[in-house]
């Protein structure tokens, strides 16, 4: 069996608020294999944002271990984490988080700039991935000139351009209407079918149903971890667990 994309052991995050210590995440053990499509659910305050920040290497755990694609990342510092994010993770945010003054192409090019890739290759890869998400004709547009769905596609393209081990989406349809949401989720399904490992953090059941496995967090611990039969049936394949 290949190395899991994600493996956490006793992952714990505590925040100190005044005299009180809040345990946002307690001893979470989770393994995600290659090409899994997993949804993280939970009410607000359940620790799912904290979990996502840790998985996305935006934050460091108070205790516990985390291996990303076999690399131990729990002990890394700021700049090392930046490199890990750049190489292994593709982010899709609820609010798109595109640079407003940059074109779609430049937004997608951004991770490659920080990866130190030459201008020529950057453009090639950015154009390639923009075409893949169906925005081949919108590359010189700025975010303000694009619809919500198109913006999120730019964000997806940006997330994919570095060929990440994990596509990490935080409420990817939270700011989209239902028609556009369906389109974006269809794109995710397509990417998953192409071999991409995907983690979606959401509180919407409809969205979670696209995933093949749903992990529900409550009060910082894993409450349930179930395979999603309907999604599996639709995809017609066994989960890679």
């Amino acid at each position: 069996m290949s190395t899991p994309v994600i493996r956490t052991q006793g992952l714990t995050k505590e925040y100190v608020l005044g005299a009180e210590t809040v345990r946002a995440l307690r001893d979470v053990d989770l393994t995600i294999e290659r090409n899994e499509y997993i949804a993280i659910m939970g009410p607000s305050g359940s620790g799912k944002s904290t979990f996502m920040n840790l998985i996305g290497c935006l934050d460091t755990p108070t205790a516990g271990q985390y291996w990303l694609d076999g690399t131990p990342v729990s002990g890394l510092v700021d700049d090392e984490l930046a490199r890990i994010r750049n190489h292994y993770i593709g982010f899709v945010f609820q609010t798109f988080n595109l640079l407003p003054r940059a074109t779609a192409l430049h937004n997608v090019e951004l991770p490659l700039i920080y990866a130190g890739i030459s201008k020529k290759e950057r453009i090639e890869r950015a154009v390639d991935v923009l075409e893949k998400v169906g925005l081949g004709d919108r590359m010189e547009h700025k975010p303000s000139e694009l619809s919500g769905g198109q913006r999120q596609r730019v964000a997806v393209a940006r997330a994919l351009v570095n060929r990440p081990s994990l596509l990490l989406a935080d409420e990817p349809t939270g700011n989209l209407d239902s028609k556009t949401s369906t389109d974006i989720m269809a794109l995710f399904d397509e990417l998953h079918a192409g071999g991409q490992t995907i983690m979606v953090v959401t509180h919407e059941h409809d969205i979670a149903l696209h995933a093949h496995r749903t992990v529900t967090l409550r009060d910082g611990i894993i409450e349930t971890d179930v395979t999603n039969d309907r999604a599996l049936a639709a995809a017609g394949s066994a989960p890679a667990r």
């Binding site: 700049d79 930046a82 490199r83 190489h87 988080n97 640079l99 920080y114 940006r158």
Partner: peptide
């Protein structure tokens, strides 16, 4: 601040 956050999320180091 947000732009800097985005850049950092995408892999910008402190030096960048």
């Amino acid at each position: 601040t947000r732009e800097i956050g985005i850049r950092k999320a995408l892999g910008a180091r402190r030096r960048d």
